[in-house]
Structure formats: C-alpha cells, structure tokens
Amino acid sequence: MIAQQMPVLLAFGANLGDRGETIRAAQRELASAAGISDLNASPLRETIALTLDGPDPDAPRYLNGVATATTTLRPHELLDLLQTVESAHGRTRDERWGDRTLDIDIITFGGRSISDDRLHVPHPRAHERDFVLAPWLELDPHAVLLGHGRVAELLERIGDTTRPFEEPTHA
C-alpha cells in the first residue's frame, strides 16, 4: 500500500537562544526526516512576544516563519515528530505561551479538519496571527486558510506588525 501524500503548513517560532539558527536547524532536520519531503521555508520575520496577557515589549522578541511540505505521516505521527524536534532543541512546556527555544505548530494538514485532545487543525488561532500569515503570504500569495478565507485578506484585516529579519550569511 502506498502512503497518501498530504500537503502541510508548519509554523516555527523561537525567542530564546540563537533563534534563527534553531529554526533553520529544525527545518533541516524535518526536511531530512522519513515521511517528509519538499520542505520549502519562508523568510523569517521578527515579532513582539505574545503572552496570555497580550503583547509584551519587554520579553525577548520572537522569530517566526512557516514552511510548506509534503508528508506521508498521519497527523499525530507528524505531531510526535515535531515535538521530538522541539525537545531536541531544548523546548520545555513549563508555561503556556511562555518563552521558548523552539515552537513548531501544524497550521494545515491537507484539507482536513482535526480536533481532539492533542491536535487542532487548522490551527485555531492562525487566522489572527500576523506572524503566521505574513510569512505564509510570502511563500504563497494565493494561500487560503480553511474556514477563514484568503490569507492576504486575513492579514490585511488584522494588520502586519512583523518585520523582516536579516539572516546572517555564512561564508
């Protein structure tokens, strides 16, 4: 039996440590993982930290980006893989929406809607997060978020507070 290939959109964020290198390392690891192919990462964007109490200008700033990929993994297998990569990069889950070395979310999984105790897809807050929408729009100007509409219109509605991040060039 041939496994079904599903397009996915993953979101990456980090506000502790070498944020850019951590995100790019995680993306390289995922690109070479069994069951993942065609990973295409967006440029990174920098944003103010978002906490349970709202934006926090005093917290370390986040770097965020997204990546499209194709997977033959089932949704929870993909989630397990992402959490393994997060843990390998020092991710702890001490505080909801707290500072983190790496966060990877499944934003979309094919055209599927999934809701259980471990996974909600499409991501329930993606439509209101400029740090997901702005890099996604850079990858795909025609992107549509299931249940919410065109990404360009969503971003226009909420506004874009992100700013481009100049990644270091390695000689």
Rank of each mutant, 00 (worst) to 15 (best):
R96D: 02
Q83R: 13
L63N: 01
H76D: 08
P57T: 09
L119E: 13
A59L: 12
A49M: 02
L63Q: 09
T70C: 08
A69D: 10
R93D: 01
D105A: 11
R74F: 06
S42Q: 06
T71V: 08
H76G: 07
R118L: 13
G110H: 00
I104K: 03
R93Q: 08
P55M: 07
L81K: 11
T72R: 04
T71I: 06
R91D: 06
T108Y: 05
L79N: 03
V85K: 03
D105T: 00
R91P: 05
D117Q: 13
P55K: 15
L119G: 07
N40W: 13
V66M: 10
H76Q: 12
E95V: 15
L79G: 00
D53A: 15
G65H: 09
L81F: 04
R118P: 04
A67T: 10
I104A: 07
S42T: 10
E46N: 01
T70M: 09
A69R: 05
D117R: 14
G90M: 11
S42F: 09
Q83Y: 05
L50Q: 15
V66H: 02
E86V: 03
P57I: 09
T71D: 05
R96E: 06
A59K: 05
T92K: 14
L79Q: 06
G110F: 09
P60G: 08
